[in-house]
Amino acid sequence: MSFWKSLNNFGKAVFLVLLCIFIIFLTQVHADQVLRRSLDFVTTPILKVTSVASEYVLGTGKFLGGIGKISDENRLLKAQVAALELQDVTLEEFKLENQQLRDQLGLQQKQNFKLKTARVIGSEPVGNLKVLTINAGMQQGIAVKMPVVVSQGLLVGYVQEVYDTSARVMLLLDTSVEMPARIQQSRADGIVKGQPLGQGLSMSLIPQDATVERGNTVITSGLGSTMPPGLLIGYVQAVNKDTNQIFQTADILPAVDFGRLETVMVITNFNPSL
């Protein structure tokens, strides 16, 4: 303590800078786990509380701002419910028919995912990287590279780092993520990547002869075994075809609203190839 008091402001700043450089060095030699675990132990419970409080504040603000629109929205929702009920009946028919055909062909049912639900408790504080923190970690069976989804099949991203009670999720929107994908209608394969300003996704390396149209569905292809096949990524918004190029590209509208993620699910029974 007397050492600290004997330093002037410059000395104190130099001391803290050296401490930071020491932490950077620890991270470089992968010896920062004790520090990270301690921080996780102290900060995650606080973040769990503040994320609930923040959600309440945001929800109240949204509610107060939308009071005037409630009756219009109610009418619209009633119409949507009626349409969905009709759709539900049709889907039930398809399901039964599908089951019968599968039985006849002897095909196995698609793998059922084991899901672990987690709350989003934090977002990347600086820069524009697309990273989220969830309140489930090693203790809840979460491991690195596990796929993260919403609504059982809409791809959000994958687990990048795991701590005892929290995990960091790299979103599909980030420019560093490259996801093997497939156009559902034409079965053409390509690679989906985040756009630099975080304003959507783009799909590249689509063969020039493949038919790609606006509104087509983009799903994970499962190539490379990094992700299970068939998870929904988004919809084709625009196709960029240049006959001089070997491949065509497409702008993809993500199926997930990444700006409003509150709860996600981690697929815990899929073993990705690392």
Partner: peptide, 12 residues
């Protein structure tokens, strides 16, 4: 702790 930045850079 919650950023993708290398640990130690932000406090620095």
């Amino acid at each position: 702790q919650y950023s993708a930045l290398h640990m130690g850079f932000l406090p620095l």
